[in-house]
Amino acid sequence: MPAVMPAVQSLADRLARRTARHDLRSRWFGTGRTVMALAQLSVLLFAPVKSLLIPVIGMADYPSCDHVRAASALCLGGDAVGMEPRRWLLIVILAVVASGYRPRWTAIPHAWATYSVAVSIAVPDGGESVGMIMALLMIPAGLADDRTWHWQRPERDARPSWRTLSFVAFLAMRVQIAYLYLDSAIAKFGVADWANGTAEYYFLRDNMFGVARPWDSFFLWLSKNAVIVVALTWGALVIEIAIGVCLLASERWRKAGMVMDIVLHGSIILTMGLWSFALVMIGSAIVCASPDRRRPPERDTGDAQGPVSESGVHCAECGAAVRAVATV
């Protein structure tokens, strides 16, 4: 037991130092929120309500308003309120979130809006669920963000309690997104087409999710080469694993993971579309890659090391000048 205590104390000290310099109130966090909100906004703006709530064989009518789904905005008001007013309510909420106005005020409405889309539409593509989870996990970070716009620099340091909550939420977001990528990649190895390197050949020719114009001719031509098909298929698995690992690592590696994420999902947009899904994943990676905000060095009125210069560092010349004035 005595041998364990120093290790525990060391870990506690490291977490305390890490939490003390943690601050998600940056343009990185704001950009990620905006991208995710725009992803959900695109679904509601460019898809008619009827197409989102189309009946599915073997399933109940949508929106399903039983149990916890009754909290969805698309169930608001029951039969007395039509779908269009509900849709526009969600559009307004997501538009305000995307603008970056008052993160503290919009954190919970953002989570409600993404929850409403995820549990109420008939044919979600997976991005809705990821967006919902991320919006829920971002609530503590959003409540800790007292800026008027999430594009601004903070005017003062956050309170220690808010920094701690935000730090825990930040860790949870990184673990969640890393798990999604690692689980997705590892699970694909159990599918024959992914394991033998031919999956991309069939995906590009799929009637529903296959490559779209104007890139169809080019990618279909490329996919006739076996080496290219294998490289595309296994390359996607390697990138997914790399993204998952990088998002759990240091700030530098998280940024590398974000770049790979943009490349991966940008490629999916070019070939298969899936805009909302890709944007949710890109926005999530941007949030997970957020570096700590660099605080300006604190000014000092003088101590054992001497006064602080305009650049924020102690210097012997400054101390000598002050002492010379004091003796006059």
Rank of each mutant, 00 (worst) to 15 (best):
153 R>A: 14
30 G>H: 02
209 F>T: 13
320 A>V: 05
187 A>Q: 07
15 L>Y: 10
230 V>N: 12
46 F>V: 03
125 D>M: 07
130 V>K: 06
51 S>D: 13
43 V>T: 11
244 G>S: 11
191 V>K: 15
302 G>N: 08
6 P>D: 01
66 D>R: 09
306 G>M: 10
72 S>R: 03
154 P>D: 06
189 F>I: 07
135 A>P: 05
165 L>H: 04
167 F>S: 01
237 L>P: 00
38 L>T: 03
126 G>M: 05
115 Y>L: 12
205 R>A: 14
272 M>H: 13
220 L>I: 09
316 A>Q: 13
221 W>Q: 13
102 R>N: 02
92 V>R: 05
233 T>N: 04
50 K>E: 08
247 L>M: 11
144 A>Q: 00
63 P>V: 03
304 A>C: 06
328 V>D: 05
56 V>Q: 02
119 V>C: 04
49 V>K: 09
126 G>F: 03
41 L>G: 07
80 A>S: 15
115 Y>N: 01
113 A>F: 00
202 Y>L: 11
74 L>Y: 10
92 V>L: 15
272 M>I: 06
183 D>W: 05
59 M>R: 06
16 A>Q: 10
201 Y>M: 10
26 S>R: 01
306 G>N: 07
275 W>F: 14
48 P>Y: 02
32 G>N: 00
223 S>V: 11
214 P>T: 07
221 W>S: 15
59 M>F: 06
209 F>N: 14
98 A>E: 11
61 D>E: 14
17 R>P: 03
88 W>H: 14
147 R>D: 03
186 I>A: 14
130 V>H: 05
85 P>K: 03
255 K>N: 08
286 I>M: 00
284 S>F: 01
236 A>Y: 04
298 E>S: 10
222 L>M: 12
198 T>W: 03
27 R>Y: 02
259 V>H: 08
153 R>G: 08
1 M>I: 06
128 E>W: 05
215 W>R: 07
192 A>P: 01
258 M>R: 03
54 I>A: 15
323 R>E: 15
150 H>I: 01
128 E>D: 07
250 S>G: 14
195 A>C: 06
80 A>D: 10
205 R>L: 07
